[in-house]
């Protein structure tokens, strides 16, 4: 790991990660970087047992608290052994054309890919089963969850093979994927959710009805949130080229932000109602924070 000059921050900087060509390296870099921050002693053979972390809850033994993790994340984590976990995680990556947008050097898809790969790497590293599905208006790739060693490369191959294109049809896709999953587990959706919101939520609710736990990583570009442009601009939709509009961002910015916030709030609120873990991440957000969200859920 070559991230020493500016500390661990560079492990998670999306811009730095985007420059790495190998998705495995990216995922490993993120996860190892994060894990080394949590308990660096593990790599020195302190314990041969696999360890995972979960968030501290009342009743846990004080001695099992990982104090270094506390120093890094300002949260209490408990070290657990392998036999304490048994998870099948399916990572669903939105690969539609709308994900092929990035205003700060990293597209949403690149960010989402790294995030997905990192999650898969982490899950597999924790001896859990991980699989992945990519989709746009159809399921482009589906790698079912497995916990075997080296499975991560199959997942990463599926991710690397995908190029963002096509119109999102998340509602239908989620139903299809739900049909493929026979055992309950964890479903992680990484998407910009730019589809018919109710269809997406209905798809997510379907996972919940099937007994799955669901985490949604809502990936947004900062420009989508803030609309920082000046001058008169002809906006063309990435998925629907015929959808275009001329607007002065300065004039509509305030209202636009309101609309976006309403959308986010609505999704967040519906997810909460359906007991779906919702996490909004912008492409400027360091990836470890997203992973921490996962760890928080896992705890």
């Amino acid at each position: 790991m070559a991230a020493t000059a500016d500390g661990n921050k560079s492990y998670f900087d999306p811009l730095v990660l985007a420059r790495l060509s190998n998705l495995y390296l990216k995922a490993r870099w993120v996860v190892e970087g994060m894990m080394s921050g949590i308990h660096r002693s593990r790599s020195k053979g302190f314990s041969v047992e696999f360890e995972e972390h979960r968030e501290y809850s009342p009743g846990d033994e004080i001695r099992r608290i990982d104090w270094k993790a506390l120093g890094k994340f300002d949260r209490y984590f408990i070290k657990e052994t392998e036999d304490e976990t048994n998870l099948r995680a399916t990572l669903i990556l939105d690969g539609s054309a709308s994900m092929d947008y990035g205003s700060n050097g990293v597209t949403k898809f690149e960010y989402a890919s790294i995030l997905t790969a990192s999650l898969a790497y982490l899950i597999l590293k924790q001896q859990d089963a991980a699989g992945v599905a990519t989709f746009s208006d159809k399921i482009d790739a589906f790698v079912p969850p497995r916990a075997k060693r080296g499975y991560v490369f199959e997942i990463l191959r599926a991710l690397e093979a995908h190029r963002p294109a096509g119109e999102t049809n998340a509602g239908k896709i989620l139903q299809e994927i739900a049909g493929k999953m026979h055992r309950r587990g964890l479903v992680i959706l990484v998407s910009d959710l730019l589809d018919d919101t109710e269809n997406v939520l209905n798809g997510l609710r379907l996972f919940r009805f099937s007994g799955h736990d669901v985490i949604v990583f809502h990936v947004m570009d900062t420009a989508e949130i803030d609309l920082p442009f000046d001058g008169n601009i002809l906006f063309e939709d990435l998925e629907l080229p015929d959808l275009r509009v001329t607007a002065d961002p300065q004039t509509i910015r305030e209202v636009y932000r309101g609309v976006v916030n309403e959308f986010i709030d609505h999704v967040r609120k519906e997810c909460h109602a359906a007991m779906i873990d919702y996490q909004l991440v912008s492409t400027a957000t360091p990836l470890d924070r997203a992973l921490v969200s996962y760890l928080g859920w896992r705890a």
Binding site: A97, S98, M99, Y101, K108, D192, L194, D221, A223, E224, L227, F229, G231, N232, I233, L234, F235, E236, D237, L238, E239, L240, L243, R244, V245, T246, A247, I252, V255, Y256, G258, V259, V260, F263
Partner: peptide, 15 residues
């Protein structure tokens, strides 16, 4: 007028 390809055009329309 500048031309920008943008994913959230529907939000702009709504705005």
């Amino acid at each position: 007028i500048r031309r920008i390809r943008f994913p959230a055009v529907k939000f702009i329309l709504l705005s």
